[in-house]
């Protein structure tokens, strides 16, 4: 019985390892339905369906935490905790979406005629998109390919309930991390981080802290 238990643990460990690494089958998922060679667009591949319904942490048994806990915007001034230091933040409303972010001094708003982003620069920013407007609303991870062709899960981000996966273009190049924001009665939103993988250590903590404090603004 004990041997069986140990075998079970070993097997589970192997599974965890696969779930957290850039497994080859994730790097080269089946082509999107628009090629006409796969299933209809509304039917995601079982591979991704499984991942979306039971993301990594659920498989490992590690409890997840919510990245975003309080969406209510009160208009209060807040400070952000960046690297253990409290820094002042400015509230920025996102164009076309009823959300806003508190951003530190080194971030700015980039306004387009079809929305806005907040970021450190044009290449490293946080964006928002309605899920129904994604290339593949039924397969959120697949929809992140605009960041790069390699789909993967970042172990560090799997602790968050909202995390849906990442994509990247090479180890040093651009990457995108996606988070699903559900807010009762409003359209589901994709929050995504776009930055260079080589800058992950410096950029990701800032973007996580900013996203943690995203607010919903009553239209």
């Amino acid at each position: 019985m004990r041997i069986l238990k140990i075998c079970g643990i070993v097997a589970l460990t192997v599974l965890i390892g696969c779930a957290n690494s850039e497994a080859p089958n994730l790097a080269k998922p089946s082509p999107p339905a628009t090629t006409g060679e796969t299933a209809a667009p509304t039917v995601p591949s079982p591979h991704f369906t499984t991942q979306l319904e039971t993301p990594g942490p659920a498989i490992t048994g590690v409890s997840k935490v919510k990245l975003i806990n309080d969406l209510n915007y009160t208009g209060k001034e807040i400070s952000l905790n960046l690297g253990g230091r409290q820094v002042p933040a400015t509230f920025v409303e996102i164009n076309l979406h009823p959300y806003g972010f508190y951003i530190p001094e080194n971030m700015q708003e980039f306004v387009f005629e079809d929305g806005s982003e907040v970021g450190l620069n044009r290449a490293e920013f946080i964006g928002l998109s309605e899920v129904e407007r994604l290339v593949n609303p039924d397969n959120l991870h697949e929809s992140l390919r605009f960041g790069g062709d390699t789909l993967f899960y970042d172990e560090e981000l799997q602790q968050f309930e909202e995390y849906i996966g990442s994509s990247k273009d090479g180890d040093e190049g651009p990457r995108v991390d996606g988070f699903l924001l559900k807010h009762g009665g409003t359209p589901d939103m994709l929050i995504y981080f776009r930055y260079f993988n080589k800058n992950k250590e410096s950029v990701l903590p800032i973007f996580l802290e900013v996203t943690k404090n995203i607010k919903y603004i009553e239209p």
């Binding site: 628009t34 164009n95 387009f112 079809d114 044009r122 290449a123 290339v135 605009f146 960041g147 776009r194």
Partner: peptide, 17 residues
């Protein structure tokens, strides 16, 4: 092409805009 992220728009990634 294929909806790569663009610095000129916030959206314009779905092939339908």
């Amino acid at each position: 092409l294929d909806g790569a992220d663009t610095p000129e728009h916030s959206t314009h990634q779905t092939g339908t805009e």
